[in-house]
Amino acid sequence: MMMKEQQHPLWLRASADGDREAFGALYHDTRSRLFGVALMMMNSRNLAEDALQEAYIRIWHNAAEYHAERGSVVTWMTSIVRYRCLDMLRAQGTREKYVVAVAEPADEPQAIHTETSTDGTETGFTAENDSMQLCLGELSTQERQTISLVYYQGLSHHEIVAHTDHALGSVKSWIRRGLDKLKRCIQRELSE
């Protein structure tokens, strides 16, 4: 039987041709993963659902623009959700509260959530995911923490400074160095 992940490109192509049922299938198979991303970034169920709604509208209208160079269908869809969340966060200017619980894998490897979603889709368990977790473990605590705050919660530099009491220059430097290390590490891991 074809894995649902393998059906995503088929559903997306059919959506580009106007197939509403295919788009519904794609929505119901991916909504939990994408909503998890939106909820973590927006820290508000209402705002996250608003971002999710906008993102799927854009996915429907731009379905024909997807191609393999964008990564998997879910990678492409997740990017659309993330950018919508970032736009909303930047438009808000400030957020009411920060989510301070950032995974801190200094003493143990960061947990990979491998639960099965309510849609029946599995998350995690990919070679890329393994490499990412390994490479995140090679970063310093500050590098890992600042990248997590930016990527997972959409915090700006100044919000991170306010949140962590570190100097702006240090925050920027940790993110830059951390991303550099991640890039080199993942390239190395995937080429081996």
Binding site: S32, T123, L182
Partner: peptide, 17 residues
């Protein structure tokens, strides 16, 4: 986007309304 996408896999899925 492709390079960092595995970071999304560690986010627990949640059910929207």
């Amino acid at each position: 986007e492709r390079l960092l996408s595995p970071m999304n896999d560690s986010i627990p899925p949640r059910q929207p309304d």
